[in-house]
Computed example of a mutant assay.
Amino acid sequence: MATARLLLRSASLLPLRRSPLHSSRFQPRAAMASDAASQFQKIQIQREDTTFDAYVVGKENAPGVVVLQEWWGVDYEVKNHAIHISQIGDGYRALIPDLYRGKVALEVAEAQHLMEGLDWQGAIKDIQASVKWLKENGSPKVGVTGYCMGGALAIASGVLVPEVDAVVAFYGTPSSELADASKAQAPIQAHFGELDSFVGFADVTAAKSLEEKLKASGVAHEVHIYPGCSHAFMNASPEAVKRRKSMGLTDENQGAIDLAWSRFSTWMGRFLGSA
């Protein structure tokens, strides 16, 4: 998958300690922060002949948002984002599908390994099943959001999943072989850091290319680039800040985070409505 190759190529330039894969430190879900995990209802979703776990937070019958993980897996930070989303405005029902089937990476080499092994077409099917679950369980409209790898998948879902009502993507774009953004069906808002070094995937050139494709699609769209911000700038918990610094990403910009969340709120409120 070209999206994975772009991300892998960029990540290989990061000054990180790599652990050998034979001594894998993939962590089970139980390793996630218990305070965040306790707020979620764990469910199982069926699609075709496959069942996968998902995590739901927020009030029933509210508009739904499928929240897609970074390449790390369903870890503390994607759960932090989902909790935040569930509390925006009048509230949303946020659902995280477990695309890695329980595996969570702690180091870049492990995240690369997991993402490289992801069935991207299968992930799109997981997203579609998640959207349908929310709509069948009280959410009148459903959006999709995601971060890094999840951002690319969120945009792809706006092209490939007719049931998606709106998309907000953070620092990720799909490869042309996965989805052609010029054929988007859902309104798409996208956010990128000016200093993002993931070339062809989340850098300024990728952001501007996405914007041109969205213009061609004719759907409502916004592409925002945040000055002075690098990749994963939305990750602000102490654990996430430490991890970003270990990757050489030392910028911290609460103003940019607040602005991005404000734009998220406006976009999803516009297309999903209030609870």
Rank of each mutant, 00 (worst) to 15 (best):
T3S: 12
A4N: 15
R9F: 01
R9T: 07
R9G: 02
S10G: 03
S12M: 11
R18L: 09
P20N: 12
P20L: 14
H22F: 14
H22M: 10
S23K: 08
Q27S: 15
Q27I: 12
Q27C: 14
A30N: 11
A31F: 06
A33P: 01
D35T: 13
S38Y: 02
Q39P: 00
Q41W: 04
I43A: 05
I45R: 15
I45W: 10
Q46T: 04
D49S: 03
F52D: 03
A54D: 02
Y55F: 15
V57I: 13
G58Q: 07
A62G: 12
P63E: 11
P63L: 11
E70A: 00
N80K: 02
N80C: 03
H81W: 02
A82V: 04
I85Y: 13
Q87A: 04
G89T: 10
G89W: 04
G89I: 00
Y92C: 06
R93D: 06
A94E: 00
A94Q: 01
A94C: 07
A94I: 11
L95V: 06
G102Q: 05
K103H: 09
K103G: 00
E107I: 10
A109P: 00
A109S: 11
E110P: 08
E110L: 07
E110T: 09
A111T: 07
E116D: 13
Q121W: 04
Q121V: 01
G122Y: 03
A123M: 06
I124H: 02
I124V: 15
K125R: 13
D126F: 08
I127N: 04
Q128N: 13
A129V: 13
V131M: 02
V142W: 15
V142E: 09
V142L: 09
G146I: 00
G151W: 03
A156Y: 11
S157M: 02
S157Q: 05
V159A: 06
V164D: 03
D165Q: 11
A166V: 01
V167C: 02
V168G: 01
Y171C: 05
T173I: 11
S175R: 13
S176A: 13
E177M: 05
E177P: 08
L178C: 06
L178P: 05
A179W: 10
A179E: 06
A181I: 06
S182C: 05
A184F: 10
Q185F: 02
A186C: 05
P187G: 07
A190C: 05
H191N: 07
F192I: 04
E194W: 05
D196S: 03
S197R: 15
S197G: 08
V199K: 11
F201H: 10
A202H: 12
D203R: 09
V204T: 11
T205F: 13
A206Y: 12
A207T: 10
L210R: 14
K213L: 09
V219C: 06
C229W: 14
C229Y: 12
A232K: 03
M234F: 09
A236S: 14
S237V: 02
P238M: 08
V241K: 15
V241D: 10
K242H: 04
R244C: 05
M247W: 14
D251W: 09
E252S: 12
E252W: 02
Q254K: 12
A256Q: 08
D258M: 07
L259H: 08
L259G: 00
A260G: 02
W261G: 03
S262D: 01
F264Y: 12
T266G: 00
M268S: 07
F271P: 03
L272E: 00
G273M: 10
S274E: 13
